[in-house]
Simulated scan of single mutants.
Amino acid sequence: MSDDLGFTFRARKNGEVKINHNGRLATTLRGDAASDFIEEMSDCAFIDQQQVMARITGNYKRGNERLAKSHPRNS
Rank of each mutant, 00 (worst) to 15 (best):
M1S: 14
S2E: 08
S2N: 09
S2R: 09
D3Q: 13
D3A: 12
D3H: 10
D4L: 15
L5M: 15
G6S: 06
F7W: 04
T8G: 03
T8Q: 06
T8C: 04
T8K: 07
T8P: 02
F9S: 01
F9I: 00
A11V: 02
R12I: 00
R12P: 00
K13E: 09
G15F: 13
G15W: 11
E16H: 14
V17M: 10
K18I: 10
K18M: 08
I19H: 05
H21Q: 13
N22E: 02
N22F: 02
G23W: 13
G23M: 13
R24C: 08
L25F: 11
L25R: 15
A26K: 09
T27G: 01
T28Y: 09
T28M: 14
L29W: 12
L29Y: 13
R30A: 08
G31P: 03
A33M: 08
A33N: 07
S35V: 03
D36P: 00
D36F: 04
F37V: 07
I38S: 04
I38E: 09
I38D: 02
E39K: 08
E40M: 14
M41K: 10
S42N: 06
S42R: 09
S42C: 02
S42Q: 09
D43V: 13
A45D: 12
A45M: 10
F46K: 05
F46H: 08
F46N: 07
I47M: 04
D48P: 00
D48I: 03
Q49H: 01
Q50V: 13
V52P: 00
V52A: 07
M53V: 05
M53A: 07
A54W: 07
A54N: 07
A54S: 15
A54L: 10
R55P: 00
R55H: 00
I56W: 01
T57G: 09
G58Q: 02
G58V: 01
N59W: 06
N59V: 04
N59P: 00
Y60H: 12
K61V: 12
K61W: 11
R62F: 04
N64C: 09
N64F: 12
E65I: 01
R66N: 10
R66M: 09
R66W: 05
L67P: 01
L67Y: 10
A68P: 01
A68S: 11
K69Y: 11
K69R: 14
K69D: 12
K69T: 12
K69L: 15
S70I: 14
S70V: 15
P72Y: 03
P72A: 01
P72S: 02
R73D: 14
R73P: 01
R73G: 14
S75A: 13
S75K: 13
